[in-house]
Design a protein around this nucleic acid. Structure first.
Lengths: 149, 149
DNA sequence: GACGGTCTTCAAGTAACTTGAGGTTCATCG
DNA sequence: CGATGAACCTCAAGTTACTTGAAGACCGTC
């Protein structure tokens, strides 16, 4: 059940050069090789890379991912250590969630307003785009959603 | 009412080298200069840069921002064109939101479980971190936190 | 046994800045 | 008026996290 790089790539949603890159910077351990020199991977690698990808998708910088990965693989370290780290990340992630929700509202509002007031044609007097250039409060304000504080 | 680069930076939450960089790549027009050669900016610049910053914070790549900026300044083009662009980005943002929520749940669950089962000591048998490496669905599954949907 | 797809390494390119060096300008304080 | 220090200038190089390209080796199949 051993994968070549393309297989691992497909399973993890990473692409092959990125996998090589991760190996190069030590985020993945040096892969086993076949006779011909091609890398081969197993389930463990799928797991590890999935984890890494997920962290990256969350926006964690590589160095933080490295820390988490090392916590994962070094069981001699305190579980609480990992917990504290996770706690910190949790706050980061929550802050991002808030921002992203605000963004979603603001874009959705923009699209909505566009549909309503510019429907169908070119908008020589469209002022919606200008809204985006106004201070944060007023931009969000064309929605009536609960505040995201 | 003319600002120097630092003032513009403060008002827009950008930093000065970034402003120069934006000018260099043509995202901002060449700034006016004082006698001494220092750049000076006005309200129009504040608006434009605020818009740019906001777009960037949304994660739009520079080239898309460039398009939007040009849409803003060229009213002969359709407002719907901008709307479509926003629509596309909205979907991206929503997808990110979903992932981020899953991540939040997964980290929160981790912290929670840690508190419960590893409380106080090193966890040589702690398998919690491994959960993070599992497929999205199962990661989510240890949650017993209030969902924040 | 040759063909196409996948793999290899290594080097260079990309995006979007950030940082640093070395020097000018500006406002203020004595 | 002179000097000091913050803010500014340009230009070059560095950073992060990859992506792309060149030139060639391997691998399954017809």
């Amino acid at each position: 059940m051993s994968l070549r790089i393309g297989g691992l790539a497909k399973r993890t949603g990473t692409n092959a050069p990125t996998i090589r890159y991760y190996e190069e910077i030590g985020l993945l351990p040096p892969a086993d090789r076949r006779d011909g020199g091609q890398r081969c991977f197993d389930d463990e690698d799928v797991k590890r890379l999935t984890f890494i990808r997920r962290c990256r998708d969350f926006g964690l910088p590589i160095e933080q991912v490295r820390t988490l990965v090392s916590l994962m693989h070094d069981r001699s370290r305190s579980c609480n250590e990992a917990r504290d780290l996770a706690q910190v990340h949790l706050e980061t992630v929550r802050a991002k969630l808030v921002e992203l929700k605000a963004l979603e509202r603001s874009i959705a509002g923009f699209v909505q307003t566009c549909d309503v007031s510019c429907a169908g044609g070119p908008g020589p007097d469209c002022t919606i785009l200008e809204d985006l250039a106004e201070p944060a409060d007023s931009v969000v304000s064309h929605r009536r959603l609960p505040s995201h504080a």
